[in-house]
Simulated assay, not measured.
Amino acid sequence: MIHQIYPSVQHPYRYELNKDFHFAAAHYVPSDDAGKCQYVHGHTYFANITIAGDELDHSGFLVNFAVIKKLIHDRFDHTLLNNDTANFNDKEPERFPTTEVVARTIAEIVQSHLDRQPNKPKCLQVFLRETPTSYVVYRPKDGVM
């Protein structure tokens, strides 16, 4: 795994969890302005998800690390992101599978899972590296995805 210092999120919670993982996926950005990125190509994405909360669950976890990885890795690894029509489409720029939108989508998927947990943790940040020199940080505003 890439050793990285991630941007910090200031928050009032007692616990903060960070999960690193990677996944390999292809995509294309359906816009003439995307240059070469409008053609199918792939990346090994490196992700860090920051989750925080005040209460632990019945197992003593804020969230089980394995669950977070499973939510994202199992869904996106070795896929063409554009084929995930539940999250991405070729018509709305807010749903093109750019790194920004993929980071936001990861946050939405994780938060949807967290909302069903009795201890109600919050996804505070998704750091998503697309290449060795390019990354996006997504932070929901005031709990709004």
Rank of each mutant, 00 (worst) to 15 (best):
117 Q>W: 01
58 H>V: 12
66 A>V: 05
30 P>R: 03
18 N>T: 08
74 D>K: 05
14 R>C: 15
133 T>H: 13
93 P>A: 10
37 C>V: 06
139 R>L: 15
70 K>W: 02
140 P>T: 08
8 S>A: 14
16 E>W: 01
76 F>L: 13
83 N>V: 05
82 N>F: 01
68 I>S: 03
87 N>R: 10
130 E>Y: 00
35 G>F: 03
30 P>Q: 03
126 V>T: 04
106 I>G: 03
19 K>W: 00
95 R>Y: 12
57 D>S: 08
69 K>D: 13
107 A>Y: 00
80 L>P: 06
81 L>D: 10
45 Y>F: 11
109 I>G: 05
58 H>A: 15
82 N>G: 07
130 E>I: 01
101 V>R: 12
29 V>A: 07
60 G>W: 06
13 Y>Q: 05
60 G>N: 05
46 F>G: 03
122 K>D: 12
39 Y>S: 14
92 E>W: 03
55 E>T: 13
83 N>T: 14
124 L>I: 09
128 L>A: 02
78 H>V: 08
124 L>W: 00
80 L>F: 10
74 D>M: 04
139 R>F: 04
68 I>G: 04
62 L>E: 04
86 A>D: 15
135 Y>E: 11
90 D>Q: 11
41 H>W: 04
115 D>L: 12
4 Q>S: 11
34 A>R: 09
48 N>D: 06
109 I>Y: 00
90 D>P: 02
77 D>Y: 01
55 E>D: 14
46 F>E: 10
118 P>Q: 10
111 Q>H: 05
55 E>K: 10
40 V>D: 11
53 G>H: 01
118 P>N: 08
37 C>Y: 03
99 T>D: 07
96 F>V: 02
80 L>Y: 08
108 E>F: 02
60 G>P: 11
37 C>W: 01
103 A>W: 01
63 V>P: 07
91 K>S: 14
45 Y>T: 02
126 V>P: 08
52 A>P: 14
44 T>A: 10
124 L>D: 00
66 A>P: 01
98 T>R: 07
119 N>Q: 14
87 N>K: 07
62 L>H: 02
15 Y>H: 12
20 D>F: 09
90 D>E: 11
44 T>N: 14
52 A>Q: 01
56 L>F: 05
61 F>N: 15
33 D>E: 13
11 H>F: 15
127 F>L: 09
75 R>H: 08
116 R>F: 05
119 N>S: 10
68 I>T: 06
63 V>K: 02
73 H>M: 03
31 S>H: 07
70 K>F: 06
27 H>Y: 05
114 L>M: 08
68 I>Q: 04
19 K>N: 09
84 D>G: 07
4 Q>F: 15
88 F>N: 03
67 V>P: 08
114 L>S: 08
64 N>S: 10
10 Q>H: 09
